[in-house]
């Protein structure tokens, strides 16, 4: 009889545990934005974006057969400015093929931003509505994705790239994907 009674306690026990989790979620610095992509090793979402300043549209067909990095940025995003020198350095050394997607940004603002802080991108697509970003699962800018020769997403980095991240993650990944 007692174990049967214990059975009826189960829902309550389960709920108490859940409430504790909820409290943790509210009180600690839990940040739901630090998540790797669910699209890892999945085909990158299809997109076609207007090019910045009348450049040809940027589509994922432009990437076929190459290892490329796609960086989501915006002129209104402070961490993007922090990240800019690292991207510029990578571009100068010509180690990666970097494409930019201006997230929820007006073309004029994005252009001004790139003039001011330097333009590390081969080409830039304008994602004014943020739809492409949603399809990639972008939580916020900046975010960087690596896409392999078969058009699969292989890596995602949330937040501004750091020199450490370049050394410990990006470089080994490049070696693995066979791009030089």
């Amino acid at each position: 009889m007692t174990w049967r009674r214990a059975l009826y306690l189960l829902p309550l026990v389960g709920f108490v545990a859940l409430a504790a989790y909820f409290f943790y979620g509210l009180s600690s610095g839990y940040n739901p934005e630090l998540l790797p992509s669910a699209l890892i090793d999945k085909p990158a979402p299809q997109f076609q974006l207007a090019g910045l300043n009348g450049a040809v549209p940027l589509t994922n067909q432009d990437f076929t057969g190459q290892v490329v990095f796609v960086n989501f940025f915006a002129s209104w995003c402070a961490p993007c400015r922090e990240e800019s020198p690292i991207l510029m350095d990578l571009a100068r050394r010509n180690v990666i093929q970097l494409y930019g997607i201006a997230y929820k940004d007006k073309p004029a603002d994005a252009t001004k931003y790139l003039k001011e802080y330097g333009d590390p991108y081969r080409r830039v697509g304008v994602d004014e509505t943020g739809r492409t970003a949603i399809n990639f699962g972008v939580y916020g800018v900046p975010e960087t994705y690596a896409i392999d020769r078969n058009g699969h997403i292989r890596w995602r980095f949330v937040g501004p790239l750091t020199p450490q991240a370049v050394q410990s993650q990006l470089m080994p990944l490049l070696k693995k994907l066979g791009a030089s």
């Binding site: 859940l18 989790y21 909820f22 943790y24 979620g25 839990y30 739901p32 630090l34 998540l35 790797p36 992509s37 669910a38 699209l39 999945k42 699962g137």
Partner: peptide, 21 residues
Amino acid sequence: TLYPLFLDAVGGPKLSVGYPF
């Protein structure tokens, strides 16, 4: 729906659960 929260609370890796799950 709540997996990301649970996993984070026990100090596990950060993970998001999307439509594949």
